[in-house]
């Protein structure tokens, strides 16, 4: 493996993922481009959790899929465990996928209803040829079931016999089957009830403590992201606007969008809420087909100046590990 000691597990540089919008039936032509992810850079160390937050359409899920190479990259580079994986073909990606897995949002749609749970969890072992024989396979599946808090006997059942929280555990067990170094989690708890959410959040933390893997944790719930992440990147309209260690981001948010997001989240305590100013961010997220020039947030920013409308701010480091893309910050 060519990864050096100082190199992060995952390094994303200048990533762009654009989707063409085609018009016409016979003479197809590209009418417009959705700039879903438009030039982002970040890195993730082994064993670390990076939270990726933002509202719908900000590009956070697209980023996750591009890192897994399930979407084609328009521009930029993705380095994983020391390899540039940006342009690898399908067969070259296969061994990489063993090291990089995904947990999806919908625990109902992401499990094959016709497969027994043991086969769902064991399938990656077969695909990657990781089980020596039938006995080793069965033992590994049972171990994985126990790891995520299910009984080994439950492997004989079908997904519909499980509740949402249990299905998410099955999805986690499947991701862990191949012993990945990185798990990309796309809204893994947002479909779950509050009382079940905490079970799954704790499971993610326990698994990380035991296996030392890294998470790219994509979610819109800021409280959950803050709880689970070491560092957090905030996305808006295809760009990262702020990255910081979690305490720093919540205590000293520098970007006006980060501040607005934090202010919009109600805190479950009426006494705290009564003392909070409910300043509401006006407007809605513009279309990624034709994003505003300059700073993409300027159309909704309460502080925007003439410069913000023309000149695009770059991410710059204000204090150790705290990066902000705003002309006015600092």
């Amino acid at each position: 493996m060519s990864q050096t000691a100082s190199e992060p597990l995952l390094a994303v540089e200048g990533l762009r993922v654009h989707f063409p919008i085609m018009r016409g039936v016979v003479l197809k032509r590209q009418a417009a481009t959705v700039r879903a992810v438009d030039g982002i850079s970040f890195s993730l160390n082994a064993g670390e959790t990076l939270g990726l937050v933002g509202e719908s359409g900000c590009g956070k899920s697209t980023t996750g899929l591009a890192v897994l190479r399930m979407l084609s990259v328009t521009e930029g580079s993705i380095r994983f465990e020391g390899h540039d994986i940006t342009a690898l073909d399908k067969s070259a990606m296969r061994p990489i996928r063993r090291r990089m897995q995904m947990v999806y949002q919908d625990p109902f749609g992401s499990l094959n209803p016709r497969m027994k749970v043991a086969d769902i969890i064991g399938e990656p072992l077969v695909v990657h040829g990781l089980a020596e024989d039938r006995a080793a396979y069965r033992e590994r599946v049972a171990e994985l079931l126990r790891l995520v808090g299910l009984n080994a006997e439950m492997g004989g059942r079908y997904p519909h016999e499980f509740s949402g929280g249990q299905r998410q555990r099955i999805g986690i067990a499947r991701a862990l089957a191949v012993s990945p170094a990185l798990v990309i989690c796309d809204e893994p708890v947002s479909a779950l009830d509050v009382s079940i959410q905490a079970q799954v959040v704790n499971l993610f933390q326990d698994v990380q403590a035991r296996l030392g893997l890294a998470y790219l944790f994509i979610a819109h719930d800021l409280a959950v992201v803050r709880h689970i992440s070491d560092r957090i990147a905030v996305m808006y309209l295809g760009k990262i606007v702020e990255v910081a260690p979690r305490q720093e981001l919540y205590r000293r948010p520098q970007h006006p969008y980060t501040r607005a997001l934090l202010a919009a989240v109600p805190i479950p305590n009426p006494r705290v809420e009564a003392g909070r100013a409910h300043q509401v961010l006006a407007g809605e997220v513009p279309s990624p087909i034709n994003p505003p020039p300059g700073c993409r947030f300027h159309t909704r920013c309460p502080l925007a100046t003439a410069a913000c409308r023309v000149e695009e701010p770059v991410l710059r480091e204000l204090s150790t590990g705290h990066h902000v893309a705003c002309h006015l910050a600092g």
């Binding site: 249990q166 079970q199 704790n202 709880h227 805190i267």
Partner: peptide, 25 residues
Amino acid sequence: LGLMASIPRLDEDTQRRLVPIEGQP
């Protein structure tokens, strides 16, 4: 009480482990 203990909150210490309500719905 269980609901209150199981939600992460923006205004509190992040080191606290969430206390889920055990079992299934």
